[in-house]
């Protein structure tokens, strides 16, 4: 079937099987490999992307379900001139990653969280990241990064 999704501002139209998962549409059809497949069971959040601004786990969404929608992946976060998104910059400045595997999903989950709650408390952030697992950092600096991003984005939100 033909599936057309606006990915990071560009219409991506591809013939795929109905059973194609969104994450495979992004990685294989669109060649956007920044979105990782981690657990493949809706647990770890590594595959988190935004559909129409809301965080979802793309291993548990059919590409067909996102037909006609707008999807944002980690590749769509920085400006075209290469300037990092405030959430990405906060991860860098707060040392919010070690191996980096969970990071694209973390950045997307926090972006969605800040859209819904621009000034989250530390507790709000910890609950907001219940769907994202990190095996390196112990989460401390990820939470710090989310707080820093919230502060930086405060004017704009």
């Amino acid at each position: 079937m033909r599936v057309t999704i606006n990915v990071n501002g560009t219409d991506e139209s591809h013939d795929v099987e109905a059973r194609t998962l969104l994450v495979h549409f992004l990685r294989d059809a669109c060649a956007l490999t920044g979105t990782n497949v981690g657990c493949d069971t809706t647990s770890c959040g590594a595959c988190t992307v935004l559909i129409d601004g809301q965080s979802v786990k793309s291993c548990t969404v059919l590409a067909a379900q996102a037909d006609g929608a707008s999807v944002t992946t980690i590749e769509g976060m920085a400006s075209p001139d290469g300037q990092l998104h405030p959430v990405q910059r906060a991860f860098q400045e707060c040392h919010g990653l070690q191996c980096g595997f969970c990071t694209p999903g973390m950045v997307m989950a926090i972006t969605s969280l800040l859209r819904e709650n621009p000034e989250p408390s530390e507790t709000d952030i910890r609950h907001g990241l219940e769907g994202n697992l990190c095996r390196c950092t112990g989460y401390h600096n990820i939470v710090e990064a989310a707080l820093a991003a919230s502060r930086e984005m405060g004017g704009a939100s």
């Binding site: 809706t42 559909i51 979802v56 786990k57 969404v61 989950a109 769907g131």
Partner: peptide, 9 residues
């Protein structure tokens, strides 16, 4: 239920 991503879907 679940986590924010699950609740969005």
């Amino acid at each position: 239920v679940g986590d924010p991503q699950v609740r969005h879907r």
